[in-house]
Amino acid sequence: MTAVVRAEGLGKRYGRRWALHDCTLDIPSGHVTGLVGPNGAGKTTLLSLAVGMQAPTTGSIEVCGGRPAASAEQLAKVGFVAQDTPTYARLSIAEHLELGARLNPRWDHQLARDRVDRLGLDPKQRAGKLSGGQRAQLALTLGLAKRPELLILDEPVASLDPLARREFLQTLMEAVAEYELSVLLSSHVVSDLERVCDHLVVLVDSEVRVEGEVEDLLATHIRLTGPLRDVHALPSDQHVVSASHTDRQSTLVVRTSSAVLDPSWSVTALGLEDLVLAYMQAPDESRASRALEVLR
């Protein structure tokens, strides 16, 4: 399968701070990829590098087989809906579509008009008068009518109410089914992405912590609960993602592809949200060593 986004040692520095550091990614096409991480983790930086609005400080990134924004042809392949789904407040919906048609060589008139019809929007209405949900749908319509190979969305549903959020994701998934486009979308709310993503990238502190197919990730991560234990004494194929200890009990999230044989652990499956949270709280070395002292 071809990669829709491929990054090698990608980094971006603002002044002395690295917003993104040594990021290596290989996102296959035909997937809906969720980019998750806390605020300030570097999600927006990664997306704007992928779109080509910024140039990398180190490393390289390829999107749909080319350097981002390198040519008109390349620009036509990638659609982008920026954070808070911006539109031109003073332009009407019809003017937005007109603008889209003039700026994009592959513009799909029919799709754009059908979508506006189905949303029940008046083409003469100014975008500034739309509700948040309607504005998001307009921005999504523009992104889809461009007929890109990859659609990138930065926190598209963060500011929407639950109903508008659901409607937005319905439209997006319907388009994925119909046009076979790849999607890369970011969110700091994992539960929004659980149903829609089949590929996941977790970004924390400017670095990629884990990347993979959602099902593989869910199948290989488990939670172990048992009597207090030194995390360094685990079998070598159990990679500790997060660990917390009380004076009697250890709770670990580990990544492993084989069964846990130690009977003193109780093993439970992990949901996507817990999995991501485990990566956000890196194993706390100081607490682990304190637990060791208790053991002695």
């Binding site: 997937h31 809906v32 319905q170 997006l172 998934m173 089914a177 149903r195 829609v196």
Partner: peptide
């Protein structure tokens, strides 16, 4: 199904 449930088509 996708349009109703807002889930990934691959699912």
């Amino acid at each position: 199904v996708v349009a109703r449930l807002a889930i990934n088509p691959n699912t």
